[in-house]
């Protein structure tokens, strides 16, 4: 079973992608989609990626909702910053944060979250020491930002991936 279908979730995702691309549910489309999904899964199995363990779907869903709300809020904040005529009293800068998250998939998700939200950009991660270098557009209070990253994003990600 494991040899035939190494990644069931990826298989479903590939089939869904093919059906969505073709916008039809005819038997031919589904058959071709199944074949392509099998080929894709076998190709990935040849590459031997590290296995990811995703636990606690409830926490993941809550994190998703929180991230969408944050993107909405920080979009408005950044739009106001760009449109405001005053330029001097805003300070932007780099901020380095020590992280405890070590799982590569968790780090990848954290990078996507931080870069997708306007106002924060992931610059560099030092995997030997586990420090993250961020650039923040509106760096008013460093402690608040460290607290946001560590408590709001890192803790649920550690629950999900470790």
């Amino acid at each position: 079973m494991r040899r035939l279908l190494p990644y069931p979730l990826l298989w479903v995702a590939l089939l869904l992608l093919w059906v969505l691309l073709n916008e039809s549910l005819s038997p031919g489309t589904i058959l071709l989609g199944i074949v392509l999904a099998f080929v894709g899964c076998w190709c990935l199995a040849l590459l031997k990626p590290a296995r990811a363990r995703v636990r606690r779907p409830a926490v993941a869903l809550r994190l998703l909702g929180m991230v969408l709300a944050d993107i909405y809020r920080s979009s408005i904040a950044v739009a106001l910053i760009i449109l405001s005529p005053k330029r001097k009293d805003r300070r932007s800068g780099f901020l380095s944060i020590p992280l405890e998250l070590r799982d590569p998939y968790g780090l990848a998700v954290l990078a996507c979250i931080l870069t997708a939200a306007p106002g924060t950009a992931w610059v560099e991660f030092d995997s030997a020491k586990g420090t993250l270098l961020l650039h923040i557009l509106d760096l008013v209070d460093e402690a608040t930002w460290v607290d946001t990253v560590k408590n709001r994003y890192e803790r649920p990600l550690m629950e999900i991936f470790q």
């Binding site: 909405y72 950044v78 760009i82 997708a116 939200a117 306007p118 950009a121 650039h135 557009l137």
Partner: peptide, 24 residues
């Protein structure tokens, strides 16, 4: 977002601007 690309001063500030258009 594109106006931000013009108005912001340094490269690291300008990196933030396109995310406005690409996410929301």
């Amino acid at each position: 977002g594109s106006v931000g690309l013009l108005r912001l001063r340094s490269f690291y500030e300008r990196v933030h601007a396109p995310t406005l258009g690409t996410s929301m």
